[in-house]
Design a protein around this nucleic acid. Structure first.
Length: 479
RNA sequence: GUCCCCAUCGUCUAGUGGCCUAGGACACCAGCCUUUCACGUUGGGAACACGGGUUCGAACCCCGUUGGGGACGCCA
């Protein structure tokens, strides 16, 4: 591991970053993290976080994907500044720059056909040669141009020397220019390639810091050549490591990556996801729980690691449980109620809503996701319950049923004093009178009331359910 | 194949030459708490890929090996 170069931060410079996804699919977890780092960096430095949709590939870009990306970012709470820039709308400006480079001799026309280039690459592959454009039109006289062939415009890249960048994450990295070929800037149809469009847009948008996945590290050299050819200011680059799947390979749309909407559907909280994503590749000492406000305060590129991280849903879930417990009931309720109604297939009556609201705190402490929360809350909303599994069923032995029958009778007398405290006392007294331990009564009682062996404190459940529902369930279980 | 990057417990990481018989978190196991579960809490197993240097001293610096990843398009 090489030491990171010490860099002087220019305080007076206003930080401008951008997140530049291509709308060819949903916003996946890797893109979400890239967006998060950009957002955090700008919020920390008080700059601007811009959003640019890289839709120059007309065949693969879709409106659905654009909507999914915008939705995903919004849900994650990563608000961009200003209007969304659609790269395709700037095609004329890209072409203008390409022609400017042509005039300056920084670029040239290439008339090689795609088939010809394919053959060239095939030959290179077969000969175990590096695969790159051989510059066949670099110094050829334009008069040799074949008739009727629309040329592309290629960069006249330097062939000697090295191109080096001082990356804020990766450190000093360089390649020999001999390794870089003359890339296409403008296609035969006059549309810009990604390499050109990115550089022109970043320049025009005033982007000062390019923070993106390190799968773009190689691109940075080529983009820098365009920047230098135009004599523009060089942005600061920061290439963050990729997120890998459990198998260690790059997470991508066709390889295990889920859209952020999938995490929302799993009942995860945006804040938890932000915290988790932040810790993937970034650290601040031993801190694990890092709410967004702290993240903004602490985040900087220096803390970004250089190795890829694997996605671990277990840790994410654990973090989610933490944030779920911290979320106020009033905030959770409107999110959980619709889920509950959807699960139950019917709207909730007022009394059911009231019970859910009252029982929320107790169930929340035992849930890790909103989905778990909604499903564990169901017994408060339904009219009757049945044992959910064998373990629960097994607790309703004949002896236990007899006990529950007796308990129903005993508790019937408490209808006018139906509080957690008096219920607690009554059940304990009943257990003692029956010559058994509390647990022997409490567990069957729990199953009778909730259908499950797992629930909040049984007296709390009794109190919230109220005498009618509680006694009805007790009698149903005993009979 | 060529180029670039990476390498500490199963996973995420702390660690920037002595504070390291390597710390934290998740997961796992055991105990405590308790009406269940969860929380909480106590404890446990678990890592510096390998080989050479440099140095009084190396997880940290250098070189190599191995392993992993990424990029090599008129995709982005």
């Amino acid at each position: 591991m090489r030491p990171k170069p010490h860099l002087v931060r220019v305080i007076s410079m206003t930080v401008v970053t951008r997140f530049a996804p291509s709308p060819t699919g949903f916003l996946h977890i890797g893109g979400a993290r890239t967006a998060l780092f950009n957002w955090l960096f700008t919020r920390h430095h008080g700059g601007k976080f811009l959003l640019r949709i890289e839709d120059t590939d007309r065949a693969r870009s879709t409106d659905e994907a654009i909507a999914a990306i915008l939705d995903g970012l919004s849900w994650l709470g990563l608000q961009w500044d200003g209007d969304v820039v659609y790269q395709f709308s700037r095609a004329a400006r890209h072409a203008e720059v390409a022609h400017e480079m042509l005039r300056q001799g920084q670029a040239y026309r290439c008339y090689a056909s795609p088939a010809e280039l394919d053959a060239m690459r095939e030959a290179q592959r077969a000969a175990h040669q590096p695969i790159r454009y051989d510059g066949r039109w670099r110094d050829r006289d334009p008069s040799e141009a074949p008739a009727g062939v629309a040329p592309v415009i290629r960069l006249r890249a330097p062939r000697e020397g090295r191109t080096e960048i001082v990356d804020r994450v990766q450190g000093a990295v360089g390649v020999d220019n001999a390794q870089l070929d003359d890339m296409v800037l403008l296609r035969a149809d006059g549309t810009p390639t990604y390499m050109l469009a990115v550089v022109v847009d970043d320049h025009d948008m005033g982007v000062t810091h390019v923070i993106r996945g390190d799968d773009h590290l190689n691109n940075a050299f080529r983009q820098l050549q365009i920047v230098r050819a135009m004599g523009w200011a060089e942005p600061v680059y920061a290439h963050i490591p990729l997120i890998h799947g459990a198998d260690g390979a790059k997470l991508s749309k066709r390889h295990g990556a889920l859209g952020v909407d999938a995490y929302r559907d799993m009942g995860l909280l945006p804040e938890a996801l932000r915290n988790y994503l932040l810790r993937l590749g970034w650290g601040h000492g031993d801190d694990e729980i890092i709410p967004t406000a702290k993240a903004i305060e602490w985040f900087d590129l220096d803390g970004v690691g250089r190795s890829a991280a694997r996605f671990d849903i277990a840790k994410l879930t654990n973090l989610n449980a933490h944030y779920l417990r911290e979320t106020q009931d009033a905030e959770l309720l409107p999110q959980v109620l619709p889920m509950l109604e959807k699960n139950l297939g019917a709207p909730l009556a007022d009394d059911a809503r009231a019970r859910v609201a009252a029982g929320l705190a107790g169930v929340k402490a035992r849930s890790r996701t909103l989905v778990e929360l909604a499903s564990s809350l169901a017994f408060y909303a339904t009219a009757a319950v049945a044992p959910v599994d064998d373990k629960a069923r097994a607790l309703l032995t004949p002896e236990a049923r007899t006990l529950l029958g007796g308990l129903a009778t005993a508790l019937d007398g408490k209808r006018t004093d139906w509080t957690e405290a008096s219920l607690d006392a009554a059940v304990r007294a009943f257990a003692e009178a029956a010559g058994t331990k509390l647990g022997q009564v409490a567990q069957p009682l729990r199953v009778a009331l909730t259908g499950s062996t797992v629930s909040p404190g049984i007296f709390e459940v009794l109190a919230i359910l109220g005498p009618d529902l509680s006694l009805a369930r007790l009698r149903a279980a005993s009979g």
